[in-house]
Design a protein around this nucleic acid. Structure first.
Length: 270
DNA sequence: AAGACACTCAACCGCTCAGCA
DNA sequence: CTGCTGAGCGGTTGAGTGTCT
């Protein structure tokens, strides 16, 4: 007995999304939120499966996404977190506002991994490659004394706090050099005690203010405009210059998402 | 100029997990 | 407890693009 496909493959479109499909999805979610993803394509008039819609939205269309390459500071955070958490991209992404797990995963595989290898560091274990080859049986844990582990953890914690603070504060042009600092502390057993990991494993409580998170069919153009005009900034305020380049989607036609795409800096609809 | 090769990243696949009846 | 369903996650793929020869 085979596994049931996530959606009926027949009649379901696959491959790259068209501007028209993007428009429909954005329009629908900004208007209604997403109740359950399986229902979204049907309600939005898309010939896609819900999974595909969710992926497209979370990885590409979400208005609060940052675009462009990761900054040095963000890269450093990814490395540190990867040393602690491994390939738990969603957890890592949760600590980098505006970044998706897919984006971080791709960046890791295409940039950071190579960088680390070039530096002679094993991107999996975060151990020096030569040490690994000289004593293959050595684990990341066994060759570190308790004292040095504590010391290292303290230093590492301090570094991580600094970097994370930078990133959280929107430090996209970090003052630190682009030199990558590699964390070697990697202990699943000690994760429970590690404040950083504790912090990482904490749920990020949703604010609940994100308009696209609620399934409120009554939301209309005016509501969104008032959100934009009110004291509370738009969720994507300031971080979404890409929306200004909406013609990239072939959506220069203002009628397409009229009323929803509001330039928060000048209130101009486009 | 053009073909080969390398790189990037959006999208898909299949699995696990959580919630619910 | 068990089975079902939907959402989310991580690994992988492949089309598009850039660079090299």
């Amino acid at each position: 007995m085979g596994r049931q496909p996530c959606c009926d493959k027949l009649g379901v479109k696959r491959g790259p999304w068209t501007a028209e499909e993007d428009r429909k999805l954005i329009n629908f979610i900004l208007t209604n939120g997403h109740c359950c993803w399986r229902a979204v394509p049907k309600l939005a008039g898309l010939l896609r499966c819900g999974k595909s819609c969710r992926l497209r939205w979370t990885n590409y269309l979400r208005p609060d996404l940052k675009r462009g390459l990761l900054t040095d500071a963000e890269e450093q955070v990814v490395i540190d977190l990867h040393a602690k958490l491994g390939n738990r991209w969603s957890k890592i992404a949760a600590k980098l506002p505006g970044r998706t797990d897919n984006e971080i995963k791709n960046h890791w595989n295409t940039h950071i991994k190579k960088k680390l290898i070039k530096m002679g560091i094993d991107p999996v274990t975060h151990e020096p490659l030569d040490r690994k080859t000289s004593s293959p049986a050595t684990t990341w844990q066994s060759d570190v004394t308790a004292e040095s582990k504590t010391d290292e953890a303290t230093k590492q914690q301090s570094l991580q706090n600094d970097v994370v603070r930078d990133v959280s504060a929107g430090g996209s042009s970090p003052t630190e050099s682009s030199t990558i600092t590699v964390s070697t502390g990697r202990s699943s057993s000690s994760h429970d005690q590690d404040p950083l990991v504790k912090w990482l494993l904490e749920e990020d409580p949703p604010t609940g203010n994100e308009p696209w998170l609620s399934f409120a069919g009554s939301v209309d153009v005016d509501d969104f405009s008032s959100i934009a005009a009110g004291p509370a900034p738009l969720p994507w305020d300031g971080a979404t210059d890409w929306l200004l380049d909406y013609q990239d989607f072939g959506l220069g036609d203002s009628s397409l998402v009229d009323g929803y795409m509001v330039n928060s800096s000048n209130g101009a609809k486009f």
